[in-house]
Nucleic acid binder design. Structure first.
Lengths: 191, 191
DNA sequence: ACCTGAACACCGTTCAAGT
DNA sequence: ACCTGAACACCGTTCAAGT
């Protein structure tokens, strides 16, 4: 129901009906709606499983970012759902531990390594959120240009950037991830 | 009302009461609740004004990121609000144009420059969102460790990273921003 | 042009009653 | 242990009526 019509479309009455059961029957299995949403969020994030490559921090971070992005895109309404969740369970921490471990092995101090992990994750979530939201909202330059919210003469560079080919979210994501990893590498092995 | 109790606490009845007016009077000034929220979002994003430094792309991006973060932290409930908004107006695009222009001036192709801008903005929004959410939710390792959701023996590196000093969001933000700018610089002027 | 109260449709949840 | 319908409190919005 969330995938189809969004988090707001999930209500106890409709869910019960879809399950062929009375509304109040749900409350035998779930404390309240908050509890229900928490369970869903934990379930989604439960699939956040990343192969562990302790000797290759770049691959570790790259895999984490790609898998997290894939989860986001496969569950388009997940991000607000995660934000509404209270606790996400240990599944959210395992890729973190693996990433920090691999960076520590490469010589980075654990606290800085955790910071680096957040850098990657926050970019990934931010980008996925933008990617899911952008094309439908006034934040997307190409769309804004089309709808007239963004005038070509006032924003020449932006206009030039979005003209021609369609905007390529995959390429933008790869560019961002690559840039971050290069920045981290420069930090790990200064010339 | 949003700042005090969150977006959900904003309802037409309570807002009207606070304004000392009947509920339906609001509908003379606003189409519906969606329209109201859009207006608030546009208002908040209206303060997204960044000094323009065409000859210093690093300063341009740094200032953009800092100001955007300050807006987020000053309006803790803004991020879901922005996500709910339909159109944000030209204020959202001016810093974008300035950033793309400065990067283009430094020799970057406009499309790549726009991608770089999104990298910075998505990281900033992702980080701010995390910063506002983290301490209160199960996503914060330090908090998870305290509450027992994260066991020290299973997550030794993470545990080590969050033990000792309190987690420093400012430092983590600076680290992320610096790393990104270094990555971009390496891309602009390869050795 | 702006305001108002009554009413409608909807939703989460409590409660008393059942099996 | 699980289910049910009635009821309550709440919320967005329409409508008819006012100034």
């Amino acid at each position: 129901m969330i995938d189809e019509e969004g988090l707001d479309a999930l209500n106890m009455r409709a869910l019960a009906q879809r399950l062929g059961v009375s509304t109040m029957a749900l409350y035998n299995h779930v404390d309240d709606k908050r509890d229900l949403v928490n369970g869903i969020a934990r379930n989604v994030i439960g699939s956040f499983d990343v192969p562990v490559t302790p000797d290759d921090w770049q691959e570790q971070l790259r895999a984490t970012s790609h898998i997290l992005r894939r989860i986001c895109l496969a569950n388009p309404r997940m991000i607000p759902l995660i934000e509404k969740a209270d606790v996400l369970g240990p599944a959210a921490f395992r890729p973190m531990e693996a990433a920090v471990a691999s960076l520590a092995k490469a010589g980075m101090e654990p606290r800085e390594a955790l910071t680096a992990y957040f850098l990657v994750v926050n970019f990934t979530l931010g980008h996925s959120s933008y990617e899911l939201r952008g094309p439908f909202r006034g934040l997307d330059p190409a769309e804004a240009l089309r709808s007239g919210h963004l005038e070509a003469q006032t924003f020449p560079f932006t206009t030039q950037a979005v003209s021609g080919r369609e905007w390529d979210f995959d390429a933008a994501f790869e560019f961002g991830l690559r840039t971050i990893l290069e920045g981290l590498e420069a930090r790990l092995s200064p010339r």
